[in-house]
Amino acid sequence: MKVSLFIPCLTEHFFPSSGISMVKIFRHLGIDAEYIEDQTCCGQPAFNSGYRHEAVPLAEKFIRLFREKEYIIAPSGSCVSFVKNNYKELNISDELKPALKNISDRIFEFTEFLVDVMKIENLGGEFNHTVTYHDSCHLLRELNIHDQPRKLIRAIKNINFIEMNSADTCCGFGGTFSYKFENVSVAMTEQKCKNIEASGAEYCVGADSSCLMNIEGFLRKHKMNAKTIHIADLLAESLKL
């Protein structure tokens, strides 16, 4: 089996390790992962800020690059959801429209792919820490991914998994919202971080780098104890890959 990696901007520039961990896990499972070097951003920041015309060339580029791929996998629910659910809102050229359908059916978030497509819930790793899980909004509400990451986490040996309060409440990032309304965004992040601390978890696991970046940024700035970890990194580490 072969998958094509869709590496979102934050993964490319800030958190490459979660992408690399994902690749390691694929290799561990005997899945061939290819990386299309010409890929850039999916266009979500422009679209979400109201700049639909500006998102079009990026979307068209994405469709051209990935149109023939069997599986498109990303370590980010938000970007997957954007391609899957919002590309159809864009005024993309007619010749690319049929390809869009194919892409929508074949694009998956990493944990969704492992659990729903590959039917893998137990990777067999071990992790001796207490963790909680933050539901990223688009993962949860646009892709309906709730159980998949939890199954993968719970299957890890020696891990102590605790649900925090309001695990499904937004962390406050929201892309450009985080600087347009910085104070509101921060107030939301603070609430999220309080819930993480209150859960007693050493790590807050997530499946979207944007939320993790936001949460981690607040935790560090405020010298709180908990750390964030991307689920791909957690799984790779538990397998000592």
């Binding site: 992408g19 607040f218 700035k221």
Partner: peptide, 21 residues
């Protein structure tokens, strides 16, 4: 500005995913 008053901004990775991959 507009982001990191209360949140540390992450470090840009010295290589990036592509190079590491």
């Amino acid at each position: 500005p507009g982001y990191n008053k209360e949140r540390q901004f992450p470090l840009i990775h010295s290589e990036g995913f592509r190079a590491r991959f």
